[in-house]
Amino acid sequence: MINIFDVVIIGGGLGGLTLSIQMADLGWQVLLIEQKNYPMHRVCGEYVAKEAWGFLNRIGIDANALQLPIIDKLKVSAVNGEFLTSTLTSGGRGISRFLLDDLLYQKAIEKGVQVITNTKVLGVQQIAKRWEIETKENIFKSKSVIGAFGKRSNLDKFFRRKYLEENLKNTRLKNFVGVKYHLKGDLPSDIIELHNFSGGYCGISKIENDLICMCFLAKGSYLKDAHSLEEMEQKYLSRNPFLNKYLKYERVWDKPLSIAKVDFSHKSISENTIPMLGDAAGLIAPLCGNGMTMAMQASVFLTPLMDSYLKEEISWEQMTDIYHKTWQSTFGKRLFTGRIIQRFFGNSLTTNLLIKLLNNSSTLTKTLIKSTHGEVF
């Protein structure tokens, strides 16, 4: 075991894994701690925008060799079945988190990253210019530490993150339940669909092996009212004719993957001076673009900053300050636009009005789609 690591990354999602690979490529000793075991399923839509695939190819994930579905069309429907279709200018590819996370995990191991799985981090503290990261079994020491621990973590409470206190006052963007299925059935491989229902919306798209990813978000109060997922699906989702069709498709799993208390509130980009990455920096509403892509992109501009800090070219404070500014300039407008759009979704009246408006203005539709996608990185 290394006495002092150069980098410890808490969380092995897309942001944490891609950061670990890049830092290892630069020659640094990296430890990544993940509380689950690979390969694993995660609750999220499974679509990676085209802007990310050049980067994934550079670190050794060959999209062409994987023969993934290429998605370049969008379909959005209201609860009453009214819909719009549009082209996705940049588009993307469908791939499951089960496959993508595992490919990145194997690549990290290949690059020399030390990965510890099935391990929960209990606390983090800075002593002088070193960090101590505590787990049940060990205390690891590092020159730097990054938080990439996902949607919900005990570390949020450990750090006493401000958003937790603020959410007691404002519940508008919190307390969603996320549910994901893999399905077998008929769906064009080149389209991603977004279907609204009362209290939420559902994404549908093809992934590898001709499977369909069906992932939906619903207000937690609606699940409480319905008493079970099955009852909620019949009471709310099935009222949309498109979703009613997909609810009848064969399900690959006996039980869905689900997560409660999904929260889209604003989070700080660092906590206790520790840079946050991916969902730990602020859960990306699906309508902001592509959270999988954004997590990886953040790792790309964090990597050279971490490298400069470890080479003692910049201070920790300078590193975190530049990271904050870059994160805001890269994602700020997308998050703002996505949150505005999200307020229209999950409500029958506003969703119907929005789709009618967009159907009457192809220019506005293309503008909104463009504003929720980024540049190639």
Rank of each mutant, 00 (worst) to 15 (best):
L100I: 13
I95T: 01
K120D: 14
W131K: 02
I71E: 15
V124S: 08
E132T: 03
A108H: 10
T87Y: 10
S96M: 00
R130P: 00
Q114T: 10
L84Q: 03
I139M: 05
I133R: 10
V121K: 14
D62A: 14
V113D: 00
N138W: 04
A65P: 04
I116F: 11
I61M: 14
N138I: 07
G91R: 06
V121E: 15
K120Q: 15
Y105W: 00
P69E: 04
E82W: 03
E137G: 00
S90H: 14
I127S: 00
N80S: 15
P69W: 04
L103M: 11
G94P: 11
K129M: 02
N80G: 07
S77I: 01
N80R: 09
E110D: 05
E82N: 06
R130T: 09
E82K: 03
S90K: 14
R93M: 08
G112P: 04
G123N: 13
T135Y: 07
A78K: 05
F98D: 01
N64G: 07
E134R: 09
D72P: 13
L104T: 06
T89E: 15
N80V: 07
Q106V: 06
T119Q: 13
L103N: 08
K111T: 05
I116A: 08
Q67V: 08
V121A: 14
T85C: 12
L99R: 12
A78T: 06
L103Q: 10
E137Q: 08
Y105R: 01
K73T: 06
N64A: 09
S96D: 01
L74R: 10
K75E: 15
L103F: 08
I133P: 11
E134M: 08
Q126W: 00
S96G: 02
I109Y: 07
K129R: 01
L103D: 05
D101N: 10
A78N: 08
A128M: 04
Y105L: 00
S90G: 09
V115I: 15
V124W: 10
G123F: 07
R130N: 10
L100V: 10
K111W: 00
L84S: 03
V76I: 15
Q106S: 09
E137H: 05
L68W: 11
P69I: 03
E132K: 04
G112S: 05
L99T: 11
Q114S: 07
V76T: 14
T87H: 10
R97C: 03
Q106H: 11
A63Q: 13
R93D: 06
L122T: 06
V76M: 15
N118L: 09
R93H: 11
V79M: 11
L88W: 03
K75I: 07
I139C: 10
V79S: 10
F140R: 04
S86H: 02
S96W: 01
E132L: 04
I116M: 10
A65D: 13
T117L: 11
G94C: 09
V121L: 13
E82H: 07
F83W: 01
A108N: 09
